[in-house]
Design a protein around this nucleic acid. Structure first.
Lengths: 152, 152
DNA sequence: TATTGTTATACTCTATAACTATA
DNA sequence: TATAGTTATAGAGTATAACAATA
């Protein structure tokens, strides 16, 4: 029974490897990949409520609480009461949060450079294009990682 | 702050998506992706000891116990005492285990087909070749998923 | 003493469901 | 009654360390 050389296995293997390396790179900032994802999500949807974001990311409400707590404790995010509906919060990045997001994005670029280092520039372009098409064709949401999702 | 379009994120996103789909496909067999990995590992290393395999897969000894337990309970694997060293087991696939592995490999091929469906045959070949090169360049072990590894 | 496998334990993560406050 | 957010809780997964048998 030979070793699988399928594309799906390689994607999963490389994806998991890259995610681990990215987490290591972020460690000095005392932040995790999923927090970067949430910071980006808030930045792209300023003022959205917790559950709105949770729905887009596939995160259950109770989990969103501690998730946002993490970022609020560190001073990266503010929960502002929505005067129109005082049950809901409006989430906003603080200056500190914006700065942290920017740093994380820089690390993300470095990380990408490391992952693609074995390829020429042309090859990277081809790879990026093929992966983008797969991602789109399988209805994956840009910037949303399926690891956030709970199945079923 | 724009959506990341980096290769590393796409790999992680597609890899996680594919892993979830593969797990769904295996569900009727009441087996999980990691068990398939272990079956394959045993098949490729008949007679190896638990800890030998654990070392190759990056799985800690205590975890290997319940891992192998799972497969033994289902009758897929046999623990045979090694007469040369009666502390160690020699792991072997049963006929049932071989049949299950074969079935899982068929599903794996179907799964690969699904993941690659949006691409032409030529594009799949290009993608497979680029991913293989990345995997090799980053010293990933063929058929061994980093998710089995504990970091540090 | 060292090594293979096992068990006990403690810790983390997460989903479900009950709860509160507002609507 | 319904909804946003929260808390309590229980279950799964996993690593560490202590342990038994054998070397």
């Amino acid at each position: 029974m030979e070793t699988p050389k399928g594309v799906a296995f390689l994607l999963s293997q490389l994806g998991a490897f890259g995610a681990q390396r990215f987490a290591e790179r972020l460690r000095p900032l005392e932040i995790e990949p999923r927090h970067v994802g949430l910071l980006r999500m808030i930045s792209a949807n300023e003022g959205a409520s917790q559950q709105e974001l949770g729905e887009r990311m596939g995160v259950v409400p109770s989990r969103m609480v501690s998730f946002v707590d993490d970022l609020e404790k560190r001073g990266f995010v503010e929960r502002r009461r929505n005067p129109k509906d005082r049950r809901a919060y409006a989430l906003h990045l603080t200056g500190k949060g914006t700065a942290m997001l920017r740093q994380a994005m820089l690390i993300s670029v470095e990380h990408d450079e490391e992952v693609c280092a074995p390829l020429s520039q042309d090859e990277r372009d081809v790879l990026a294009q093929l992966l983008s098409r797969l991602s789109t064709a399988h209805d994956l949401i840009p910037g949303v990682h399926p690891g956030y999702r709970h199945l079923r």
